[in-house]
Nucleic acid binder design. Structure first.
Length: 567
RNA sequence: CGGGGUGUGGCGCAGUUGGUUAGCGCGCAGCGUUUGGGACGCUGAGGUCGGAGGUUCAAGUCCUCUCACCCCGACCA
Protein backbone atom coordinates (compact mmCIF):
# COMPACT_ATOMS: atom_id res chain seq x y z
CA UNK A 1 0.00 0.00 0.00
CA UNK A 2 1.26 3.41 -0.90
CA UNK A 3 0.76 5.97 1.84
CA UNK A 4 -0.09 8.60 -0.75
CA UNK A 5 -3.18 6.55 -1.56
CA UNK A 6 -4.02 5.40 1.97
CA UNK A 7 -7.27 6.76 3.33
CA UNK A 8 -6.76 8.36 6.71
CA UNK A 9 -4.37 11.10 7.82
CA UNK A 10 -2.08 11.22 10.80
CA UNK A 11 -2.40 14.21 13.09
CA UNK A 12 0.28 16.05 14.97
CA UNK A 13 -1.88 17.30 17.75
CA UNK A 14 -3.81 15.32 20.29
CA UNK A 15 -7.53 15.63 19.75
CA UNK A 16 -9.12 17.42 22.70
CA UNK A 17 -11.88 14.85 23.12
CA UNK A 18 -9.52 12.01 24.06
CA UNK A 19 -7.61 11.51 27.25
CA UNK A 20 -6.85 7.81 27.24
CA UNK A 21 -3.65 6.73 25.47
CA UNK A 22 -5.40 4.30 23.14
CA UNK A 23 -8.10 6.78 22.24
CA UNK A 24 -5.61 9.58 21.55
CA UNK A 25 -3.32 7.41 19.47
CA UNK A 26 -6.13 5.81 17.50
CA UNK A 27 -7.35 9.27 16.56
CA UNK A 28 -3.89 10.67 15.84
CA UNK A 29 -2.99 7.68 13.70
CA UNK A 30 -6.12 8.25 11.67
CA UNK A 31 -7.48 4.82 12.52
CA UNK A 32 -10.89 5.65 13.93
CA UNK A 33 -13.39 8.45 13.55
CA UNK A 34 -16.16 9.21 15.99
CA UNK A 35 -19.70 9.24 14.67
CA UNK A 36 -21.55 9.62 17.99
CA UNK A 37 -20.82 8.89 21.64
CA UNK A 38 -19.49 5.34 21.71
CA UNK A 39 -19.96 4.88 17.95
CA UNK A 40 -16.96 4.84 15.63
CA UNK A 41 -15.95 4.31 12.04
CA UNK A 42 -12.90 2.15 11.52
CA UNK A 43 -10.57 3.46 8.83
CA UNK A 44 -8.51 1.07 6.70
CA UNK A 45 -5.57 0.71 9.10
CA UNK A 46 -7.80 -0.13 12.07
CA UNK A 47 -9.92 -2.38 9.92
CA UNK A 48 -6.89 -4.41 8.87
CA UNK A 49 -5.94 -4.90 12.53
CA UNK A 50 -9.48 -5.86 13.41
CA UNK A 51 -9.55 -8.42 10.62
CA UNK A 52 -6.28 -9.91 11.83
CA UNK A 53 -7.62 -10.19 15.35
CA UNK A 54 -10.79 -11.67 13.92
CA UNK A 55 -8.85 -14.30 11.99
CA UNK A 56 -6.85 -15.32 15.03
CA UNK A 57 -10.05 -15.65 17.04
CA UNK A 58 -11.79 -17.57 14.25
CA UNK A 59 -8.85 -19.93 13.95
CA UNK A 60 -8.86 -20.68 17.67
CA UNK A 61 -12.63 -21.08 17.82
CA UNK A 62 -12.56 -23.52 14.91
CA UNK A 63 -9.68 -25.46 16.45
CA UNK A 64 -11.62 -25.78 19.70
CA UNK A 65 -14.55 -27.26 17.80
CA UNK A 66 -16.67 -24.17 17.25
CA UNK A 67 -18.86 -23.76 14.17
CA UNK A 68 -19.30 -20.29 12.80
CA UNK A 69 -22.74 -19.01 11.92
CA UNK A 70 -24.47 -15.64 11.72
CA UNK A 71 -27.50 -14.41 13.60
CA UNK A 72 -29.44 -11.19 13.09
CA UNK A 73 -28.80 -7.90 14.82
CA UNK A 74 -32.53 -7.20 14.76
CA UNK A 75 -34.45 -9.23 17.32
CA UNK A 76 -38.05 -9.28 18.49
CA UNK A 77 -38.37 -7.76 21.95
CA UNK A 78 -40.84 -10.54 22.70
CA UNK A 79 -37.98 -13.01 22.79
CA UNK A 80 -36.35 -10.99 25.56
CA UNK A 81 -39.59 -10.76 27.46
CA UNK A 82 -39.76 -14.55 27.45
CA UNK A 83 -36.60 -14.78 29.53
CA UNK A 84 -37.21 -11.58 31.47
CA UNK A 85 -33.86 -10.29 30.39
CA UNK A 86 -35.44 -7.22 28.81
CA UNK A 87 -35.74 -6.02 32.42
CA UNK A 88 -32.25 -7.13 33.37
CA UNK A 89 -30.82 -5.10 30.49
CA UNK A 90 -33.23 -2.27 31.12
CA UNK A 91 -32.29 0.90 29.31
CA UNK A 92 -29.15 -0.75 28.00
CA UNK A 93 -31.26 -2.36 25.33
CA UNK A 94 -31.66 -0.34 22.13
CA UNK A 95 -35.31 -0.77 21.22
CA UNK A 96 -37.33 0.29 18.20
CA UNK A 97 -40.67 -0.33 16.55
CA UNK A 98 -41.38 -1.49 13.04
CA UNK A 99 -44.11 -0.11 10.75
CA UNK A 100 -46.70 -2.31 12.39
CA UNK A 101 -45.66 -1.08 15.82
CA UNK A 102 -44.04 -4.38 16.72
CA UNK A 103 -41.27 -3.90 19.22
CA UNK A 104 -37.76 -4.91 18.24
CA UNK A 105 -34.36 -4.49 19.75
CA UNK A 106 -30.80 -4.43 18.48
CA UNK A 107 -29.01 -7.45 19.86
CA UNK A 108 -26.77 -6.65 22.84
CA UNK A 109 -25.91 -10.38 22.90
CA UNK A 110 -27.46 -13.49 21.38
CA UNK A 111 -28.28 -16.08 24.04
CA UNK A 112 -32.00 -15.83 23.33
CA UNK A 113 -31.72 -16.13 19.56
CA UNK A 114 -29.27 -18.99 19.66
CA UNK A 115 -31.14 -20.92 22.31
CA UNK A 116 -34.25 -20.81 20.12
CA UNK A 117 -32.18 -21.81 17.13
CA UNK A 118 -30.66 -24.73 18.97
CA UNK A 119 -33.98 -25.80 20.39
CA UNK A 120 -35.33 -26.04 16.84
CA UNK A 121 -32.39 -28.13 15.69
CA UNK A 122 -31.51 -30.33 18.64
CA UNK A 123 -33.77 -33.10 19.90
CA UNK A 124 -31.40 -35.82 21.02
CA UNK A 125 -28.31 -36.19 23.15
CA UNK A 126 -26.78 -37.44 19.89
CA UNK A 127 -26.86 -33.85 18.60
CA UNK A 128 -24.73 -32.67 21.50
CA UNK A 129 -22.33 -31.25 22.48
CA UNK A 130 -22.31 -28.17 20.26
CA UNK A 131 -20.26 -25.00 20.12
CA UNK A 132 -21.63 -22.25 17.90
CA UNK A 133 -20.26 -18.79 17.38
CA UNK A 134 -20.42 -15.61 15.38
CA UNK A 135 -18.42 -12.42 15.01
CA UNK A 136 -20.78 -9.49 14.82
CA UNK A 137 -21.76 -6.00 15.92
CA UNK A 138 -23.42 -5.71 19.30
CA UNK A 139 -25.47 -2.78 20.52
CA UNK A 140 -25.70 -1.61 24.09
CA UNK A 141 -26.90 1.76 25.20
CA UNK A 142 -24.23 2.19 27.82
CA UNK A 143 -24.96 4.83 30.48
CA UNK A 144 -21.55 6.28 29.81
CA UNK A 145 -19.46 5.25 26.83
CA UNK A 146 -15.84 6.10 27.50
CA UNK A 147 -12.22 6.02 26.36
CA UNK A 148 -12.85 5.51 22.66
CA UNK A 149 -13.11 1.85 21.81
CA UNK A 150 -12.83 0.67 25.40
CA UNK A 151 -16.50 1.15 26.15
CA UNK A 152 -18.51 1.68 23.00
CA UNK A 153 -22.21 1.42 22.29
CA UNK A 154 -21.72 -0.39 19.02
CA UNK A 155 -18.86 -2.84 19.00
CA UNK A 156 -17.78 -6.06 17.34
CA UNK A 157 -17.86 -9.14 19.48
CA UNK A 158 -17.11 -12.79 19.03
CA UNK A 159 -19.75 -14.69 20.96
CA UNK A 160 -19.65 -18.44 21.28
CA UNK A 161 -22.28 -20.55 23.00
CA UNK A 162 -21.77 -24.11 24.20
CA UNK A 163 -24.50 -26.70 24.59
CA UNK A 164 -23.93 -29.84 26.62
CA UNK A 165 -25.89 -32.71 28.09
CA UNK A 166 -24.36 -32.60 31.57
CA UNK A 167 -22.14 -30.65 33.92
CA UNK A 168 -19.05 -32.62 32.97
CA UNK A 169 -19.64 -31.73 29.35
CA UNK A 170 -20.04 -28.08 30.28
CA UNK A 171 -16.79 -28.21 32.24
CA UNK A 172 -15.04 -29.64 29.20
CA UNK A 173 -16.46 -27.02 26.85
CA UNK A 174 -15.55 -24.32 29.34
CA UNK A 175 -11.99 -25.56 29.62
CA UNK A 176 -11.61 -25.77 25.86
CA UNK A 177 -12.70 -22.16 25.59
CA UNK A 178 -10.47 -21.10 28.42
CA UNK A 179 -7.49 -22.58 26.60
CA UNK A 180 -8.60 -21.12 23.26
CA UNK A 181 -8.82 -17.70 24.89
CA UNK A 182 -5.35 -18.03 26.34
CA UNK A 183 -4.11 -18.89 22.85
CA UNK A 184 -5.84 -15.86 21.35
CA UNK A 185 -4.28 -13.38 23.76
CA UNK A 186 -0.86 -14.89 23.44
CA UNK A 187 -1.09 -14.83 19.63
CA UNK A 188 -2.16 -11.19 19.79
CA UNK A 189 0.90 -10.43 21.91
CA UNK A 190 -1.23 -9.43 24.87
CA UNK A 191 -0.59 -10.75 28.36
CA UNK A 192 -4.05 -11.36 29.80
CA UNK A 193 -4.70 -12.31 33.38
CA UNK A 194 -7.44 -14.80 34.21
CA UNK A 195 -9.58 -13.58 37.10
CA UNK A 196 -12.63 -14.88 38.94
CA UNK A 197 -15.64 -12.87 37.91
CA UNK A 198 -19.19 -12.23 38.88
CA UNK A 199 -21.60 -14.08 36.64
CA UNK A 200 -24.53 -11.76 37.23
CA UNK A 201 -28.00 -12.54 38.49
CA UNK A 202 -28.75 -15.20 35.89
CA UNK A 203 -25.28 -16.65 35.57
CA UNK A 204 -24.44 -20.16 36.61
CA UNK A 205 -21.68 -21.36 38.84
CA UNK A 206 -18.42 -20.28 37.20
CA UNK A 207 -17.34 -17.18 35.41
CA UNK A 208 -13.94 -15.81 34.52
CA UNK A 209 -12.69 -12.66 32.91
CA UNK A 210 -9.49 -12.05 31.00
CA UNK A 211 -7.87 -8.80 32.02
CA UNK A 212 -5.12 -6.77 30.44
CA UNK A 213 -3.45 -4.82 33.21
CA UNK A 214 -3.68 -1.10 32.44
CA UNK A 215 -3.94 2.10 34.44
CA UNK A 216 -6.84 3.19 32.27
CA UNK A 217 -8.76 -0.03 32.91
CA UNK A 218 -12.23 0.32 34.35
CA UNK A 219 -12.13 -2.80 36.46
CA UNK A 220 -10.42 -3.22 39.77
CA UNK A 221 -8.65 -6.53 40.23
CA UNK A 222 -7.85 -7.95 43.64
CA UNK A 223 -5.01 -10.45 43.46
CA UNK A 224 -2.59 -12.29 45.63
CA UNK A 225 1.10 -12.01 44.72
CA UNK A 226 1.76 -15.13 46.78
CA UNK A 227 -0.58 -17.58 45.03
CA UNK A 228 -2.55 -17.49 41.79
CA UNK A 229 -5.67 -15.95 43.29
CA UNK A 230 -7.05 -13.06 41.22
CA UNK A 231 -10.60 -11.78 41.06
CA UNK A 232 -12.62 -8.86 39.86
CA UNK A 233 -13.26 -6.61 42.85
CA UNK A 234 -16.98 -7.28 42.30
CA UNK A 235 -16.36 -10.91 43.09
CA UNK A 236 -13.22 -10.87 45.22
CA UNK A 237 -13.15 -12.44 48.65
CA UNK A 238 -10.82 -11.84 51.53
CA UNK A 239 -10.41 -13.22 54.97
CA UNK A 240 -12.17 -10.87 57.33
CA UNK A 241 -10.07 -10.03 60.35
CA UNK A 242 -11.16 -12.11 63.30
CA UNK A 243 -12.52 -10.38 66.35
CA UNK A 244 -11.79 -11.91 69.70
CA UNK A 245 -14.86 -13.30 71.41
CA UNK A 246 -15.49 -12.49 75.00
CA UNK A 247 -18.16 -13.54 77.36
CA UNK A 248 -21.45 -12.11 76.13
CA UNK A 249 -22.84 -9.33 78.30
CA UNK A 250 -26.40 -8.08 78.60
CA UNK A 251 -27.68 -5.36 76.25
CA UNK A 252 -27.06 -1.88 77.55
CA UNK A 253 -28.41 1.41 76.21
CA UNK A 254 -26.04 4.35 75.92
CA UNK A 255 -26.73 7.97 74.98
CA UNK A 256 -25.02 9.03 71.75
CA UNK A 257 -26.41 12.51 71.14
CA UNK A 258 -25.91 13.64 67.55
CA UNK A 259 -23.77 10.63 66.71
CA UNK A 260 -24.87 8.98 63.48
CA UNK A 261 -21.85 7.63 61.63
CA UNK A 262 -19.70 4.69 62.62
CA UNK A 263 -16.69 7.01 63.06
CA UNK A 264 -18.62 9.27 65.44
CA UNK A 265 -20.08 6.45 67.50
CA UNK A 266 -16.88 4.45 67.77
CA UNK A 267 -15.00 7.62 68.66
CA UNK A 268 -17.42 8.62 71.36
CA UNK A 269 -17.68 5.18 72.94
CA UNK A 270 -13.98 4.44 72.43
CA UNK A 271 -14.53 1.09 70.73
CA UNK A 272 -12.82 0.09 67.49
CA UNK A 273 -14.97 0.27 64.35
CA UNK A 274 -14.64 -3.48 64.05
CA UNK A 275 -16.67 -3.77 67.26
CA UNK A 276 -19.64 -1.92 65.83
CA UNK A 277 -22.41 -2.97 63.46
CA UNK A 278 -23.29 -0.79 60.52
CA UNK A 279 -26.80 -0.57 59.08
CA UNK A 280 -27.11 0.22 55.36
CA UNK A 281 -30.36 0.50 53.46
CA UNK A 282 -31.03 -0.42 49.86
CA UNK A 283 -34.03 -0.49 47.57
CA UNK A 284 -34.09 -3.85 45.78
CA UNK A 285 -36.68 -3.92 43.00
CA UNK A 286 -38.68 -1.30 44.84
CA UNK A 287 -38.48 -2.89 48.30
CA UNK A 288 -36.45 -1.63 51.21
CA UNK A 289 -33.85 -4.07 52.53
CA UNK A 290 -31.87 -3.75 55.74
CA UNK A 291 -28.21 -4.67 55.44
CA UNK A 292 -26.05 -5.28 58.52
CA UNK A 293 -22.31 -5.49 58.30
CA UNK A 294 -19.40 -5.00 60.66
CA UNK A 295 -18.54 -1.34 61.09
CA UNK A 296 -15.08 -1.55 59.52
CA UNK A 297 -16.26 -3.35 56.36
CA UNK A 298 -17.97 -2.00 53.25
CA UNK A 299 -20.85 -3.57 51.34
CA UNK A 300 -20.12 -5.02 47.90
CA UNK A 301 -23.26 -4.17 45.97
CA UNK A 302 -22.70 -6.81 43.30
CA UNK A 303 -22.58 -9.55 45.92
CA UNK A 304 -25.62 -8.08 47.62
CA UNK A 305 -27.51 -7.98 44.34
CA UNK A 306 -26.70 -11.61 43.73
CA UNK A 307 -27.88 -12.85 47.11
CA UNK A 308 -31.09 -10.83 46.73
CA UNK A 309 -31.67 -12.14 43.17
CA UNK A 310 -32.95 -8.72 42.24
CA UNK A 311 -32.77 -6.76 39.00
CA UNK A 312 -32.41 -3.25 40.33
CA UNK A 313 -30.53 -2.28 43.43
CA UNK A 314 -29.73 1.16 44.75
CA UNK A 315 -29.04 2.88 48.04
CA UNK A 316 -32.21 4.03 49.77
CA UNK A 317 -32.64 7.75 50.25
CA UNK A 318 -32.87 9.12 53.76
CA UNK A 319 -36.55 9.91 53.17
CA UNK A 320 -37.26 6.31 52.20
CA UNK A 321 -35.51 5.06 55.32
CA UNK A 322 -37.46 7.40 57.58
CA UNK A 323 -40.71 6.54 55.84
CA UNK A 324 -40.12 2.87 56.69
CA UNK A 325 -40.11 3.89 60.35
CA UNK A 326 -36.40 3.52 60.83
CA UNK A 327 -34.36 5.84 63.01
CA UNK A 328 -31.60 6.83 60.61
CA UNK A 329 -28.25 7.06 62.38
CA UNK A 330 -29.32 4.83 65.25
CA UNK A 331 -30.66 1.85 63.33
CA UNK A 332 -30.06 -1.80 64.03
CA UNK A 333 -32.03 -4.96 63.25
CA UNK A 334 -32.93 -5.43 66.89
CA UNK A 335 -36.68 -5.53 67.21
CA UNK A 336 -37.22 -4.63 63.56
CA UNK A 337 -39.87 -6.61 61.70
CA UNK A 338 -41.45 -6.52 58.27
CA UNK A 339 -38.17 -5.65 56.53
CA UNK A 340 -35.86 -8.16 54.96
CA UNK A 341 -32.59 -8.29 56.88
CA UNK A 342 -29.39 -9.25 55.08
CA UNK A 343 -26.29 -9.75 57.19
CA UNK A 344 -22.69 -10.10 56.18
CA UNK A 345 -21.06 -13.14 57.72
CA UNK A 346 -18.54 -10.83 59.37
CA UNK A 347 -21.00 -10.35 62.22
CA UNK A 348 -20.85 -14.01 63.21
CA UNK A 349 -17.45 -13.67 64.80
CA UNK A 350 -16.89 -11.36 67.71
CA UNK A 351 -19.12 -10.42 70.59
CA UNK A 352 -20.61 -7.43 72.36
CA UNK A 353 -20.94 -5.10 69.38
CA UNK A 354 -22.14 -1.52 69.49
CA UNK A 355 -25.22 -1.03 67.31
CA UNK A 356 -28.15 1.36 66.95
CA UNK A 357 -30.94 1.18 69.49
CA UNK A 358 -33.65 2.30 67.03
CA UNK A 359 -34.21 5.34 69.27
CA UNK A 360 -32.90 8.78 68.43
CA UNK A 361 -29.44 9.56 69.87
CA UNK A 362 -29.17 6.13 71.43
CA UNK A 363 -27.07 3.03 70.77
CA UNK A 364 -26.75 -0.36 72.35
CA UNK A 365 -23.64 -1.92 73.77
CA UNK A 366 -23.19 -5.69 73.90
CA UNK A 367 -25.18 -6.64 70.85
CA UNK A 368 -24.68 -10.31 70.03
CA UNK A 369 -25.71 -12.39 67.07
CA UNK A 370 -27.87 -14.44 66.98
CA UNK A 371 -28.96 -13.73 70.53
CA UNK A 372 -30.40 -10.26 69.82
CA UNK A 373 -31.64 -10.46 66.23
CA UNK A 374 -31.94 -12.82 63.28
CA UNK A 375 -31.01 -12.22 59.67
CA UNK A 376 -33.18 -13.45 56.80
CA UNK A 377 -30.08 -13.96 54.69
CA UNK A 378 -26.56 -14.49 55.98
CA UNK A 379 -23.89 -14.31 53.31
CA UNK A 380 -20.58 -12.81 52.25
CA UNK A 381 -21.54 -9.39 50.94
CA UNK A 382 -18.31 -7.61 51.85
CA UNK A 383 -16.00 -5.65 49.63
CA UNK A 384 -12.47 -7.05 49.58
CA UNK A 385 -9.57 -4.63 49.77
CA UNK A 386 -5.89 -4.69 49.06
CA UNK A 387 -3.98 -5.32 52.26
CA UNK A 388 -6.43 -7.89 53.55
CA UNK A 389 -5.66 -11.59 53.71
CA UNK A 390 -5.89 -13.83 50.66
CA UNK A 391 -8.73 -16.37 50.98
CA UNK A 392 -6.51 -19.09 49.47
CA UNK A 393 -3.09 -18.71 51.03
CA UNK A 394 -3.48 -16.03 53.70
CA UNK A 395 -0.93 -13.83 51.93
CA UNK A 396 -1.52 -10.10 51.58
CA UNK A 397 -3.87 -9.08 48.74
CA UNK A 398 -2.94 -6.37 46.24
CA UNK A 399 -5.06 -4.51 43.73
CA UNK A 400 -4.62 -3.13 40.22
CA UNK A 401 -6.69 -1.99 37.27
CA UNK A 402 -7.49 -3.93 34.15
CA UNK A 403 -9.32 -3.84 30.86
CA UNK A 404 -11.73 -6.73 30.50
CA UNK A 405 -10.90 -8.28 27.15
CA UNK A 406 -12.90 -11.46 27.49
CA UNK A 407 -15.54 -12.99 29.68
CA UNK A 408 -16.60 -16.61 29.90
CA UNK A 409 -19.62 -17.97 31.78
CA UNK A 410 -21.15 -21.23 32.75
CA UNK A 411 -24.80 -20.36 32.20
CA UNK A 412 -26.43 -23.62 33.23
CA UNK A 413 -30.05 -24.29 32.29
CA UNK A 414 -31.80 -20.99 33.06
CA UNK A 415 -32.21 -19.97 29.42
CA UNK A 416 -32.79 -23.42 27.97
CA UNK A 417 -35.60 -23.98 30.45
CA UNK A 418 -37.18 -20.60 29.75
CA UNK A 419 -36.94 -20.99 26.00
CA UNK A 420 -37.68 -24.69 25.75
CA UNK A 421 -34.30 -26.00 24.62
CA UNK A 422 -34.52 -29.63 25.73
CA UNK A 423 -33.01 -32.88 24.53
CA UNK A 424 -33.93 -36.51 25.06
CA UNK A 425 -31.24 -38.31 27.03
CA UNK A 426 -30.14 -41.93 26.64
CA UNK A 427 -32.92 -43.17 28.88
CA UNK A 428 -35.56 -41.28 26.91
CA UNK A 429 -36.06 -38.49 29.44
CA UNK A 430 -36.36 -34.86 28.38
CA UNK A 431 -33.65 -32.63 29.90
CA UNK A 432 -32.73 -28.96 29.57
CA UNK A 433 -29.56 -28.33 27.58
CA UNK A 434 -26.69 -27.00 29.70
CA UNK A 435 -25.25 -23.81 28.29
CA UNK A 436 -22.13 -21.72 28.46
CA UNK A 437 -21.27 -18.44 26.75
CA UNK A 438 -17.94 -16.91 25.86
CA UNK A 439 -17.35 -13.38 24.59
CA UNK A 440 -14.46 -11.27 23.30
CA UNK A 441 -14.78 -7.64 22.24
CA UNK A 442 -12.56 -7.10 19.20
CA UNK A 443 -12.38 -3.33 19.31
CA UNK A 444 -11.58 -3.41 22.99
CA UNK A 445 -8.85 -5.94 22.34
CA UNK A 446 -7.43 -3.54 19.77
CA UNK A 447 -7.60 -0.68 22.26
CA UNK A 448 -6.01 -2.85 24.94
CA UNK A 449 -3.17 -3.59 22.52
CA UNK A 450 -2.62 0.18 22.28
CA UNK A 451 -2.70 0.64 26.02
CA UNK A 452 -0.27 -2.18 26.49
CA UNK A 453 2.17 -1.39 23.66
CA UNK A 454 2.96 2.26 23.13
CA UNK A 455 5.50 4.95 23.87
CA UNK A 456 5.35 8.72 23.60
CA UNK A 457 5.77 8.49 19.82
CA UNK A 458 2.94 6.10 19.13
CA UNK A 459 1.83 2.52 18.99
CA UNK A 460 4.20 -0.46 18.91
CA UNK A 461 2.20 -3.20 17.21
CA UNK A 462 2.82 -6.82 18.05
CA UNK A 463 3.67 -8.33 14.66
CA UNK A 464 0.69 -10.73 14.39
CA UNK A 465 -1.88 -7.94 14.55
CA UNK A 466 0.05 -5.07 12.96
CA UNK A 467 -1.83 -3.48 10.06
CA UNK A 468 1.31 -3.85 7.94
CA UNK A 469 4.53 -5.69 8.65
CA UNK A 470 7.00 -3.37 6.98
CA UNK A 471 7.21 0.39 6.69
CA UNK A 472 9.22 1.11 3.54
CA UNK A 473 10.71 4.52 4.10
CA UNK A 474 12.74 6.04 1.28
CA UNK A 475 14.32 9.45 1.98
CA UNK A 476 14.89 12.03 -0.78
CA UNK A 477 12.58 10.35 -3.25
CA UNK A 478 13.39 12.96 -5.88
CA UNK A 479 16.77 11.29 -6.07
CA UNK A 480 16.33 8.88 -9.03
CA UNK A 481 18.52 6.17 -7.48
CA UNK A 482 16.49 6.23 -4.28
CA UNK A 483 13.22 6.18 -6.19
CA UNK A 484 14.32 3.29 -8.34
CA UNK A 485 15.64 1.28 -5.40
CA UNK A 486 12.48 1.95 -3.39
CA UNK A 487 10.20 0.87 -6.21
CA UNK A 488 12.13 -2.29 -6.83
CA UNK A 489 12.32 -3.22 -3.14
CA UNK A 490 8.62 -2.51 -2.81
CA UNK A 491 7.90 -4.89 -5.67
CA UNK A 492 10.21 -7.55 -4.25
CA UNK A 493 8.71 -7.34 -0.78
CA UNK A 494 5.21 -7.65 -2.16
CA UNK A 495 6.34 -10.58 -4.28
CA UNK A 496 7.49 -12.25 -1.06
CA UNK A 497 3.95 -11.90 0.22
CA UNK A 498 4.94 -9.34 2.86
CA UNK A 499 2.57 -6.60 3.92
CA UNK A 500 4.24 -3.32 3.09
CA UNK A 501 3.27 0.24 3.76
CA UNK A 502 5.28 2.28 1.24
CA UNK A 503 5.88 5.89 2.26
CA UNK A 504 6.00 7.27 -1.26
CA UNK A 505 5.48 10.87 -0.16
CA UNK A 506 7.94 13.68 -0.77
CA UNK A 507 8.12 14.49 2.90
CA UNK A 508 11.12 15.35 5.01
CA UNK A 509 12.81 12.54 6.96
CA UNK A 510 11.43 13.86 10.23
CA UNK A 511 7.85 13.65 9.04
CA UNK A 512 8.33 10.15 7.70
CA UNK A 513 10.07 8.80 10.79
CA UNK A 514 7.49 10.32 13.07
CA UNK A 515 4.63 8.85 11.09
CA UNK A 516 6.38 5.48 11.02
CA UNK A 517 6.63 5.59 14.81
CA UNK A 518 3.06 6.81 15.26
CA UNK A 519 1.66 4.04 13.09
CA UNK A 520 3.89 1.55 14.85
CA UNK A 521 4.62 -0.79 11.94
CA UNK A 522 7.01 -3.42 13.38
CA UNK A 523 9.86 -3.14 10.87
CA UNK A 524 11.06 0.06 9.21
CA UNK A 525 13.18 -0.17 6.08
CA UNK A 526 14.96 3.08 5.22
CA UNK A 527 16.60 3.76 1.86
CA UNK A 528 18.54 6.95 1.21
CA UNK A 529 21.48 8.16 -0.85
CA UNK A 530 23.58 7.44 2.21
CA UNK A 531 22.56 3.77 2.43
CA UNK A 532 22.83 3.36 -1.33
CA UNK A 533 26.47 4.42 -1.20
CA UNK A 534 27.17 1.12 0.51
CA UNK A 535 24.50 -0.74 -1.45
CA UNK A 536 22.49 -1.31 1.68
CA UNK A 537 19.24 -0.48 3.41
CA UNK A 538 18.64 0.31 7.05
CA UNK A 539 16.43 -2.02 9.10
CA UNK A 540 14.94 -0.82 12.36
CA UNK A 541 12.42 -2.53 14.57
CA UNK A 542 9.81 -0.28 16.11
CA UNK A 543 10.37 -1.91 19.46
CA UNK A 544 14.12 -1.30 19.46
CA UNK A 545 16.40 1.71 19.35
CA UNK A 546 19.27 0.31 17.29
CA UNK A 547 19.22 -0.34 13.57
CA UNK A 548 21.11 -2.67 11.23
CA UNK A 549 22.31 -2.29 7.69
CA UNK A 550 21.43 -5.06 5.27
CA UNK A 551 22.83 -5.48 1.76
CA UNK A 552 20.45 -4.31 -0.94
CA UNK A 553 20.93 -7.59 -2.69
CA UNK A 554 18.42 -10.15 -1.41
CA UNK A 555 16.93 -7.81 1.16
CA UNK A 556 13.38 -8.98 0.47
CA UNK A 557 14.30 -12.55 1.19
CA UNK A 558 16.09 -11.62 4.38
CA UNK A 559 13.09 -9.64 5.57
CA UNK A 560 10.78 -12.48 4.72
CA UNK A 561 12.89 -14.73 6.96
CA UNK A 562 12.96 -12.13 9.72
CA UNK A 563 9.18 -11.69 9.68
CA UNK A 564 8.42 -15.39 9.38
CA UNK A 565 10.68 -16.25 12.27
CA UNK A 566 9.08 -13.64 14.52
CA UNK A 567 5.51 -14.61 13.75
C1' C B 1 -29.70 10.04 36.44
C1' G B 2 -26.39 13.49 39.83
C1' G B 3 -21.87 16.63 39.56
C1' G B 4 -18.17 19.23 36.49
C1' G B 5 -16.50 20.95 31.69
C1' U B 6 -16.34 22.14 26.35
C1' G B 7 -18.67 23.65 21.61
C1' U B 8 -15.27 29.38 16.83
C1' G B 9 -12.37 26.38 8.99
C1' G B 10 -9.94 19.21 8.86
C1' C B 11 -6.93 19.50 13.99
C1' G B 12 -5.21 22.57 18.32
C1' C B 13 -6.58 27.26 20.15
C1' A B 14 -7.23 33.14 20.85
C1' G B 15 -11.10 36.58 20.53
C1' U B 16 -10.88 42.54 26.18
C1' U B 17 -16.17 46.22 29.45
C1' G B 18 -21.08 43.93 23.15
C1' G B 19 -18.44 48.01 18.36
C1' U B 20 -15.88 47.85 11.35
C1' U B 21 -14.52 42.91 6.92
C1' A B 22 -13.87 36.87 13.13
C1' G B 23 -7.94 35.93 14.07
C1' C B 24 -3.35 32.64 15.14
C1' G B 25 -0.57 27.90 14.73
C1' C B 26 -0.76 23.15 12.31
C1' G B 27 -2.77 20.89 8.14
C1' C B 28 -4.53 21.72 2.83
C1' A B 29 -3.53 23.90 -2.71
C1' G B 30 0.24 26.44 -6.08
C1' C B 31 5.37 28.13 -6.88
C1' G B 32 10.41 28.30 -5.28
C1' U B 33 14.39 27.01 -1.90
C1' U B 34 15.29 22.95 1.32
C1' U B 35 15.25 18.31 4.15
C1' G B 36 18.63 11.53 8.42
C1' G B 37 13.86 12.90 13.60
C1' G B 38 7.63 16.97 12.58
C1' A B 39 12.17 22.84 7.21
C1' C B 40 11.51 27.99 5.11
C1' G B 41 9.52 31.98 1.99
C1' C B 42 5.68 33.90 -1.01
C1' U B 43 0.66 33.29 -2.78
C1' G B 44 -4.13 31.08 -1.97
C1' A B 45 -8.64 28.24 -0.58
C1' G B 46 -11.51 27.09 3.52
C1' G B 47 -15.98 29.74 8.94
C1' U B 48 -24.47 30.16 8.86
C1' C B 49 -18.83 31.18 15.76
C1' G B 50 -23.40 23.77 17.93
C1' G B 51 -28.90 25.15 17.20
C1' A B 52 -33.44 28.16 18.22
C1' G B 53 -35.49 32.36 20.29
C1' G B 54 -34.68 37.06 22.70
C1' U B 55 -32.29 41.96 24.38
C1' U B 56 -29.74 45.89 21.49
C1' C B 57 -28.53 50.95 16.70
C1' A B 58 -25.02 46.73 16.98
C1' A B 59 -24.20 39.78 19.54
C1' G B 60 -18.78 34.91 18.75
C1' U B 61 -19.40 38.14 23.21
C1' C B 62 -25.46 39.44 27.22
C1' C B 63 -30.31 36.53 28.51
C1' U B 64 -33.65 32.12 27.91
C1' C B 65 -34.35 27.46 25.99
C1' U B 66 -32.20 23.42 23.53
C1' C B 67 -28.68 19.90 21.27
C1' A B 68 -24.04 17.46 21.05
C1' C B 69 -19.51 15.80 23.02
C1' C B 70 -15.89 14.92 27.14
C1' C B 71 -14.63 13.86 32.41
C1' C B 72 -16.06 12.00 37.63
C1' G B 73 -19.84 9.18 39.96
C1' A B 74 -24.26 6.13 39.78
C1' C B 75 -25.19 2.34 36.35
C1' C B 76 -23.36 -1.47 33.15
C1' A B 77 -23.81 -10.03 30.32
Amino acid sequence: MRISKLFGKTQREIPAEADTASHQLLLRAGMIHQVAAGVYSYLPLAWRVLKKIENIIRDEMDKAGGQELMMPVLQPLELWQETGRDLAFGKGLFTLSDRKERKLCLGPTHEEVITKLVSANVQSYRDLPLMLYQIQAKFRDEPRPRAGLIRAREFTMKDLYSFDTDEDGLDQSYNKMLQAYRNIYSRCGLPALLVDADSGAIGGKDSHEFMVIAESGEDEIIYCPGCQYAANADKAESIKSKIDSEETLPLEEVDTPGMATIEEVSGLLKVPQSHTLKAVFYIADGKLVFVVIRGDIEVNEVKLKNVLHCIELRMATEAEVIEAGIVAGSASPIGISGIKIIADDSITSGTNFVAGANKPDTHFRNVNYPRDFKADIMADIAKAHAGEECPRCSGKLSSTHGIEVGHIFKLGTFLSEKLGAFFIDQSGVSQPIIMGCYGIGLGRLLAAAFEQNHDDKGIIWPLPIAPYQIYLCPLYLENPQVAAAAESIYAELEAQGLEVLFDDRNESPGVKFNDADLLGIPVRVTISPRTLETNSVEIKKRSEKEFDLLPLEGVAKRLKELITSSL
